[in-house]
Simulated scan of single mutants.
Amino acid sequence: MRAGANLVSFVTIGVLVGCGVTLLLERSLSRVLLGVILIGNGVNLLIVFGGRSGAAPVVGASDEAAMSDALPQAMVLTAIVITFGFTAFLLAISYRSWYLSGDDEVPDDVEDREIVRRAAQREMSVADLAGEPPTADPQQVDAPAPPREEGPG
């Protein structure tokens, strides 16, 4: 019976972390916030349910007189506090973005637009992605790189 409970708990943990990662990759700050919360809860459950099968994760293994192990409790409590602080920080950023622009979506920066433009013109090659100079045109190998534009702020 315990193995079934572990399977259900680990599937639940996997779904929480998987959905959290999927939401974390979105451009909307509210979805990023939900992704952080789901990942935090999934990791907390992993710490709690990650013990040996059939044994409680916090109490000593067989001896009743043994002291309980406080490390998993301390780690989960610390993770809860860190997740709460990070959630408050993301809420503040999301509110500020909504207040200034009326939207919580993260806009493209200069580098994103340049990559999209170059990919659309089929200028992007594996050498460009690796940061190496292209070898097809020897005149461009020795040419200095154009200066980068800095965004506002």
Results as ranks from 00 to 15, higher is better:
Pro57Met: 09
Val58Asp: 06
Val59Asn: 10
Val59Leu: 09
Val59Thr: 08
Ala61Lys: 02
Ala61Gln: 05
Ala61Pro: 12
Ser62Glu: 02
Asp63Val: 09
Ala65Trp: 09
Met67Ala: 11
Asp69Lys: 02
Asp69Pro: 05
Asp69Ser: 01
Asp69Leu: 03
Leu71Pro: 05
Leu71Asn: 12
Leu71Phe: 11
Pro72Met: 05
Gln73His: 09
Gln73Ile: 06
Ala74Tyr: 01
Ala74Arg: 12
Met75Glu: 00
Met75Trp: 11
Leu77Val: 13
Thr78Val: 10
Ala79Asn: 11
Ala79Val: 10
Ile80Ser: 11
Val81His: 03
Val81Thr: 03
Val81Leu: 15
Val81Trp: 02
Ile82Asp: 00
Thr83Met: 11
Phe84Thr: 07
Phe84Asn: 02
Phe84Glu: 08
Gly85Trp: 05
Phe86Val: 03
Thr87Glu: 09
Thr87Ser: 05
Ala88Val: 00
Ala88Lys: 07
Ala88Thr: 11
Ala88Met: 00
Phe89His: 06
Leu90Gly: 01
Leu90His: 01
Leu91Ala: 00
Ala92Val: 02
Ile93His: 07
Ile93Lys: 02
Ser94Pro: 02
Tyr95His: 07
Tyr95Gln: 07
Ser97Asn: 06
Ser97Thr: 09
Trp98Asp: 10
Trp98Asn: 07
Trp98Pro: 01
Trp98Met: 12
Trp98Thr: 10
Tyr99Asp: 10
Ser101Pro: 06
Ser101Cys: 06
Asp103His: 04
Asp104His: 10
Asp104Phe: 05
Glu105Arg: 14
Val106Pro: 02
Pro107His: 08
Pro107Ile: 15
Asp108His: 08
Asp108Gln: 14
Asp109Met: 06
Asp109Gln: 11
Val110Ile: 15
Glu111Phe: 14
Glu111Val: 13
Asp112Leu: 14
Asp112Val: 14
Asp112Thr: 13
Arg113Gln: 11
Arg113Asp: 12
Arg113His: 13
Arg113Trp: 00
Glu114Ser: 15
Glu114Cys: 12
Ile115Ser: 13
Ile115Thr: 13
Val116Arg: 15
Val116His: 10
Val116Ile: 15
Arg118Gln: 07
Arg118Asp: 08
Arg118Leu: 15
Arg118Pro: 07
Ala119Trp: 04
Ala119Phe: 06
Ala120Met: 12
Gln121Met: 12
Gln121Val: 04
Gln121His: 05
Arg122Gly: 06
Arg122His: 04
Glu123Leu: 15
Glu123Asn: 05
Met124Asn: 06
Met124Val: 15
Met124Asp: 10
Met124Pro: 03
Ser125Phe: 08
Ser125Leu: 04
Ala127Gln: 15
Ala127Thr: 08
Ala130Phe: 13
Gly131Tyr: 12
Gly131Trp: 06
Gly131Ala: 10
Gly131Ile: 06
Glu132Trp: 12
Glu132Thr: 07
Pro133Arg: 13
Thr135Phe: 14
Ala136Lys: 08
Ala136Tyr: 01
Gln139Asp: 11
Gln139Glu: 04
